[in-house]
């Protein structure tokens, strides 16, 4: 999966039983891809000693504060590994 800039994506809602870098506040919410930041080892695998770790594209994804919190006019941008994301259906 390679996601084009501008694609709307949803951060996965699940709650993994291990270390992850998808903050709770973004889970289940919809944001827009700004750009790809290259391919990087997946922290979930590195933290658990999975060798070799999966290597995935990381995307800068911009969320609207209103979508995250129900209030606010700012945006919040996170960098998220591709397995943290699904294309908005």
């Amino acid at each position: 999966m390679t996601l084009a800039n501008g694609t709307w994506v949803r951060a996965r809602a699940g709650d993994p039983a291990h270390h992850t870098r998808l903050p709770r506040y973004a889970r289940g919410h919809v944001g827009q891809i700004l750009h790809c930041e290259g391919r990087w080892p997946l922290p979930d695998d590195r933290a658990r000693g999975v060798v070799p770790p999966r290597v995935e594209a990381v995307y800068a994804v911009r969320f609207r504060a209103f979508d995250l919190w129900g209030e606010g006019a700012h945006t919040v941008t996170l960098a998220l590994w591709e397995s943290y994301l699904e294309e908005r259906r």
Partner: peptide, 11 residues
């Protein structure tokens, strides 16, 4: 240890 193992231990 790597950074993610260290973070995991802190968390």
């Amino acid at each position: 240890f790597n950074t993610d193992e260290f973070r995991d231990a802190i968390e």
